[in-house]
Design a protein around this nucleic acid. Structure first.
Length: 280
DNA sequence: CTGTTAGTCCGGCGGC
DNA sequence: TGCCGCCGGACTAACA
């Protein structure tokens, strides 16, 4: 499941590998991934023909490619999406959804088994509504010591106080980029149970949580992200953070700190993992 | 209007 | 071996 560190890893690698090559042609093989109303594979091909990617950025869990004339491609990897850099002679991979051929023989394959991802194409200057709905990026300066207490404890946060902290961390309109893996890992590091009501968490704990979120995300970016099953870097290699997970997907295993058995609870329909002794 | 919840998409996988 | 239910980001619809 690509979250912020996985998307950041992919974006950095794409930046190093696919910018400034002329796109000879692009193909949309799974039209249902393109969410622009009324756009089909023909429109998609025409959008890219002769263009060049001049930048790739991450916003939350979204990838944003800008073309030389200012138009943009938005991509979300969903659960099983990946971008793999290949050569023109490499065979087409299974579950190919879109593909970009560059002058010189470089190829970018976009693969998504379950097709929970999305693609959008936007002309120069157009608003991208899904990006406008994103909250604070946890690696940005705006995510300072005050940010989390403000989100939860301020007047505006009134209605959010009854939610479980784990559920709140997953809300992309509040904090953009944190998913199930890093919500669990950050809560573990901050010593806070995922089931705690957000409004009952102290200011000091929230500040500690914000720090934990940043620390775990930065460490995961350094390791190239976490591979549970599908996520891959653009060279098709897995991320290196999985062995460093302390609670996520470790139900029934022993806490690396205290030795207690790691528990799993379902919150808002999502699995949340925690250590019953280390987290209060 | 605001905020929350349920349904939807999809296919690999585990269990029987 | 085959079928069935489970899982999950984020959108949309439906609801309080």
């Amino acid at each position: 499941m690509p979250e912020l560190p996985e998307v950041e890893t992919v974006v950095r690698e794409l930046r190093a590998q696919v910018l400034n090559y002329r796109i000879t042609h692009a193909e949309l093989l799974r039209a249902d991934l393109l969410k622009n109303l009324g756009c089909d594979a023909t429109d998609f091909a025409a959008f890219f023909a002769g263009g060049t990617f001049i930048s790739v950025e991450r916003q939350g869990k979204y990838l944003l490619f800008t073309l030389d004339h200012g138009s943009r491609l938005l991509a979300h990897l969903g659960m099983t999406g990946k971008f793999i850099v290949a050569g023109e002679k490499d065979p087409p991979p299974k579950w190919l959804c879109s593909q970009y051929h560059f002058k010189g023989g470089l190829r970018l394959d976009h693969v998504d088994v379950r097709r929970f991802g999305r693609l959008e194409i936007h002309p120069k200057g157009a608003d991208i509504p899904v990006l406008k709905r994103l909250g604070i990026d946890p690696l940005s300066k705006a995510f300072n010591a005050k940010a989390l207490p403000t989100l939860v404890l301020s007047r505006a946060g009134n209605k959010r106080r009854t939610r479980a902290i784990h559920t709140l961390l997953l809300d992309q309109s509040l904090i953009a980029g944190v998913g199930n893996i890093y919500a669990a890992e950050a809560l573990f590091r901050a010593g806070i149970r995922p089931t705690r009501q957000a409004g009952k968490i102290t200011k000091a704990e929230l500040e500690r949580l914000a720090k934990s979120i940043q620390t775990v995300l930065k460490e995961a970016v350094k390791a190239g992200g976490t591979t549970i099953s599908d996520y891959r870097r653009v060279d098709d290699k897995p991320g290196g953070f999985r062995i460093r997970l302390r609670v996520y997907s470790r139900e029934g295993e022993l806490c690396r700190i205290c030795g207690k058995t790691v528990k799993r609870v379902v919150l808002g329909g999502r699995s949340a993992y925690y250590c019953p002794l280390c987290q209060k």
